[in-house]
Design a protein around this nucleic acid. Sequence first.
DNA 1: TATTACGTTTAGTAATTACTAAACGTTCTA
DNA 2: TAGAACGTTTAGTAATTACTAAACGTAATA
Lengths: 176, 176
Amino acid sequence: MTTKLSQLKQDFTEGLSQISRFWGFPKGMGAIFAVLYLSPAPLPLDEIVTQTGLTKGAVSTEVRTLARMGLVHRSSRLGDRKDYYEAESDFYKSIRSILKERQNSEFDRAVRSVQETLEKLESGSVSGDEAEVAFVHERVKALQEFFNAIDNLASAVIKLESLGFGNVTKILSVLK
Amino acid sequence: MTTKLSQLKQDFTEGLSQISRFWGFPKGMGAIFAVLYLSPAPLPLDEIVTQTGLTKGAVSTEVRTLARMGLVHRSSRLGDRKDYYEAESDFYKSIRSILKERQNSEFDRAVRSVQETLEKLESGSVSGDEAEVAFVHERVKALQEFFNAIDNLASAVIKLESLGFGNVTKILSVLK
DNA sequence: TATTACGTTTAGTAATTACTAAACGTTCTA
DNA sequence: TAGAACGTTTAGTAATTACTAAACGTAATA
């Protein structure tokens, strides 16, 4: 039993949409990426619109955030005022740029607030039951250290030239 | 200038709530975890209710998913029919159990659908422009390999006794 | 200068998700 | 056996997020 390529593409797109949603991104974003990822040539916005069934507005904004994440690239051609988009196919590259993106976000602000909490505790300026303050201090400190570990890991990954297969297997062997 | 412990706790809780939302979990979940994490003793549901301002129903369901993730533990005492909850303080342990949790989820289903797409392509049963089929094949394969790499990494982490400081620094040195 | 071909913004709607309030079931106590 | 003290479920609401439709801005073309 044979499958039409167009059908296959559609299934694939559906799959990526769900994956996208799973990671907390709009499912339309996954669909857009899928369409670009399976296209041999860069596509103009209009083409993405017809292939995903989303509106111009939606594609316009979501493709922009994809670009900011480094998952797609925008380009233009001389004498053609359309923008063309194509998917980044090196996923390790994408991961790095997503991590980078996340570093200057909401998340970082929240992490810093934990840092501030810790500083107050270190400076001894917190009033309350002594034993409980000590306990809280210890806990907050542990959390902060955990965040630091994660952060170091992320930074290291970002700095890498490439997180290719070799590196992954190296990591795996260390973890054995 | 001194800060009251109660105020500090509240700030901390606020911070964790945001972090929780950032990772796609309800912010109430972060708040519940924060309250438990800063409590020297296990707390009954009612106490969580008063400290977070959520309702019994909400706390009941969210504390359960926290437990499933291994971020909190439920216990009970003889001659007391309240349940008591306490936070897991070993975050590496938590990470492992979250990863485990994620492995049997929606996500895995979606990943498998990519696998199926690939199998169809491998079996040569896809009809359409030959060159394009070849291109799509290559791309889908690359994506699948990427997923495998991630999956291997996750599995390795899960199997670890402990992802303590030592291991993290080892990983870091490999990535240099 | 008017028209067309684009991408962006905006204001509103649909869909989803987080939560509340209250009914419910069970187990213990009187 | 009634009542109280729990945790759970359910049905509905509030808040958030994803998206649509359409107005808009800009630059190229006639």
